[in-house]
Simulated assay, not measured.
Amino acid sequence: MKAANFVSPKHGSVIQITKAEAKRLEQYWAAQPKNKTIKSGGLWLDDSGRHINAHGGGIMRYGDTWYWFGEHKADTTSSAMVGVMCYASKDLVNWRNCGVALYVSDKKGSDIERGCVLERPKVIYNKVTGKFCMWFHLELKGKGYSAARYGVAVSDRPEGPYKFLYSQRANAGTYPIEFGDKELTVLDTMDINHFKEWWTPDWYEAIRQGLFLKRDLGSGQMSRDMTLYIDDDGKAYHIFSSEDNLTLHIAELTNDYLHHSGRYTRVAPGGQNEAPAIFKKDGTYWMITSGCTGWAPNEARMFSAPSIWGPWTQHPNPCRGPKSEITFGGQSTYILPVGEQLIFMADIWRPKHPSDARYIWLPIEFEDGKPVVRWQDEWELSVK
């Protein structure tokens, strides 16, 4: 009899059970009392009793249902061996496993070949085309993190299946909207061969002025950690870490949400920000990010702007409570609006056992007009 992987609710370890045993467990968990509270950092079980496997994810609401998309993590590698998972919920606490929304490919040489790096998938719905549009950070199999691409897939249904369309770098041959004659004149005088040594004051200033922007102009700008955002007017934006993770880019999407429009801006040049999560409150745009320390957690950063195009101002760490100096041991991935409530979502990475990575969900409060994320061991969420 065929076996299936199962995550032990007690230990969080992966064991093998038969299909018949898996079915009985699913029936058992379906009969259990429903969860009413969120407990960050613990095992979060779906309707079959398995730990939710949707890391680096984001959530989309369609109708009366919330859909959670995230990376399927294997037990021993962070490479994509399955693809993007989808879960559905009516209350944001109890989740049904909808299966794989986007499968990696077994075709050799495919952009999304099994073993590639596929991270931080986000899905948004286009009301005009009726399509569900998925974007994600993509690194080609066997190429490390050198490709620095974004990938795009599309579906007619929220849970998929999604059809992979293409991957590429961002805005080739295009300058940011804030680059006028003065900025372009400075770029013309720059020679990257004059900056062999990194991290010097001169190098930092050159980065700020666009040294790596110029380097990648022909091939397209790097696109790594990312999120998507739909503004009140229906315009959508792709926010991603670029220029060797030194600078964030905010790029406007075309009306079908499947390409860049060619308009983009740079945020915090040389600031080394990744893991962007964005929201708007009372006309002000807020963005929470992290520093660049690999899988290790670090102190969250926060920025605000009166327009999606800036200017963006940095603020102190919004986190409060135990381990706030390392974002409670996690890294930002998404900010979910639920009515007037805003939920900060983050991942606690476990690179030695990727599938056992955990989730942090905490309400965002405001103090003196600025967002605050305060640790709570347990809290109740109402979608009303």
Rank of each mutant, 00 (worst) to 15 (best):
P371I: 12
G12S: 06
E26V: 13
E197Y: 09
F279G: 04
R149P: 00
T77Q: 00
C98S: 10
E243T: 12
A54W: 02
G271D: 09
Y162M: 02
F179V: 09
K235A: 09
V84E: 00
H260Q: 12
L246K: 15
K127A: 09
N245P: 02
L258S: 05
P201R: 10
R374C: 06
K73D: 00
Y150F: 15
R61I: 07
E380D: 07
V7Q: 03
N171S: 13
Y162C: 02
A305G: 11
M302P: 06
I38P: 09
A277Q: 08
Y257N: 05
H194S: 11
T313Y: 03
S105Q: 12
T174Y: 01
K163L: 04
F366G: 02
L248M: 15
P337Y: 03
F303T: 01
K384H: 13
G310Q: 01
I59E: 00
A277P: 09
R224Y: 13
Y257W: 05
R169H: 05
M85L: 02
L187G: 07
C116S: 09
Y67V: 02
F344D: 00
T227K: 13
E71K: 15
H315C: 04
N255S: 14
N245L: 07
D64Q: 14
E252P: 00
R266P: 02
L362M: 03
G329T: 03
I335S: 04
W286G: 08
I239S: 07
V154R: 11
G109E: 06
Y204R: 13
F195L: 01
K370L: 13
R263P: 04
E340T: 05
R301K: 15
R61C: 07
H51K: 11
G294A: 07
E243M: 14
G330R: 06
